[in-house]
Design a protein around this nucleic acid. Structure first.
Lengths: 242, 242
DNA sequence: ACTCGTAATTTGGTATGACCAATTTTCTAA
DNA sequence: TTAGAAAATTGGTCATACCAAATTACGAGT
């Protein structure tokens, strides 16, 4: 039997202060716009040194709860002002080309694996859902349009068909970052003449491979599809560099 | 026309440090588990005072990028540990067989993808590292032993050879959960007579495929290897059910 | 009495140095 | 070779001083 005991973490003073102030904010003693006591005051109130208070304020600022203005004071910020982004998203937000490439690549690996699994396990319900979404896609494509929302739905349905909750969760996280960063930029490429038909063909082939329960084929088709996406993104990045 | 000019914010030097370190993490110079230079070192490197460095580290810790241990040092955390894995790790804690199966499966997808990428990009340094670890593995196997730590090292080196920092972080998170749950339980199977030689062969084949820069072969060999692991785990779960 | 500019005060930002506590490493003795 | 102790390393906390920006208070000029 494996004994798993959680590591004891000595609580740092600054963390304790963070908790307290966060408590004051959450229960309404400190409202947005309020000015929190100065660092020196807080330090003497809490009976700790100023650096400790300062570290706590730093953390709270990084979390978006407080905002410090030199000479002015420290104020409580409205929580809606700052969208609390996931650590991953925060890392990618600066649009480093190398990172975006990594992101698309990771997605490629996960999605092709989803397609593989889906081709092994998709039941009638899964296939019906895929066909429904594809029909919508086809109709829009006939009018020369391409809705990235429907596109995302399609890919999500595939992962759902993998019947693996963890895979769904992980891929969903990657997906959300993908949408928040490059999806929009890729839209113009999607709209280009000829691309829509190619995309439609890709999705149909993927769907058919899954329906035929051919894992390797499904994986390969998904790879081809996402390779195109990666290629487009590479072009986009190169244009920017110029 | 609404003129939106962003208020000029005097950049604090701690924020500058945060940016720099975040950059090092995102482009892979700092990998999960790596040890960051000590506060005093960083301070002298950057030409700033220690409190400034300290505040930066505080912020990064609060964001989940770093983890500081008193007396030990400051280490890079896998990015997905908090955003994706926290809820997941709790789910897997209860050892739901279905979830464990999912975990191994996700790992299989990610690892085979890593092997694929590694076979495309591994340079001489990567290959040298792989060969070094394999040599250790071989020596231990000759004495009838199998060290799961070295095993993990091998797989980690493969992901490192993929030269994709995001892939490294995602897989590292999955790995940590894997170790916390079933790795230990699988040990007894590893130790069985005949298995060690088979495992050794698997790793050698994977390594050779990567060295030969044959992505598809590397992927396939990795799949075969992890399929064995999955098989063993299935046996283990069935035994428990009885 | 009001306005405006300037000086004094307040407040956050940075730096230095010191000491403590936990950890890791190194060394030593059995 | 190994186990335990000493030393070095590293994060955690504190005290203090000074700088820079913002606020406030004050006083001269209208």
């Amino acid at each position: 039997m494996t004994i798993v005991l959680k590591p004891i973490r000595p609580k740092k003073i600054s963390e304790e202060i963070v908790e307290q102030i966060k408590g004051l904010i959450s229960n309404g003693d400190l409202k947005p716009g309020d000015r929190v006591p100065s660092e020196r005051e807080l330090a003497s109130m809490l009976g700790v040194s100023r650096p400790s208070v300062r570290e706590a304020i730093m953390v709270l600022s990084a979390m978006g709860f407080l905002e410090a203005r030199q000479g002015g004071g420290t104020f409580v910020r409205a929580l809606t002002e700052t969208s609390i982004m996931d650590p991953l998203a925060k890392l990618v937000e600066k649009k480093d080309p190398e990172l975006l490439r990594s992101l698309v690549e990771v997605r490629m690996g996960l999605e092709s694996w989803s397609a593989f699994l889906a081709a092994q396990r998709a039941d009638d319900d899964d296939l019906a859902e895929l066909r429904r979404i594809y029909a919508v896609m086809e109709k829009q494509a006939a009018r020369g349009g391409w809705d990235s929302t429907v596109d995302a739905e399609f890919h999500y349905a595939i992962t759902a068909a993998s019947h693996n909750s963890l895979q769904m969760h992980v891929l969903d996280s990657i997906h959300s970052i993908f949408h928040a960063t490059i999806q929009v930029a890729l839209m113009e490429f999607y709209q280009e003449e000829g691309h829509i038909q190619k995309l439609l063909t890709h999705h149909r082939e993927i769907m058919e491979a899954i329906a035929a329960h051919e894992p390797e084929l499904a994986r390969q088709k998904m790879m081809e599809h996402l390779a195109l996406v990666e290629d487009k993104m590479a072009q986009l990045l190169n244009d920017k560099d110029k």
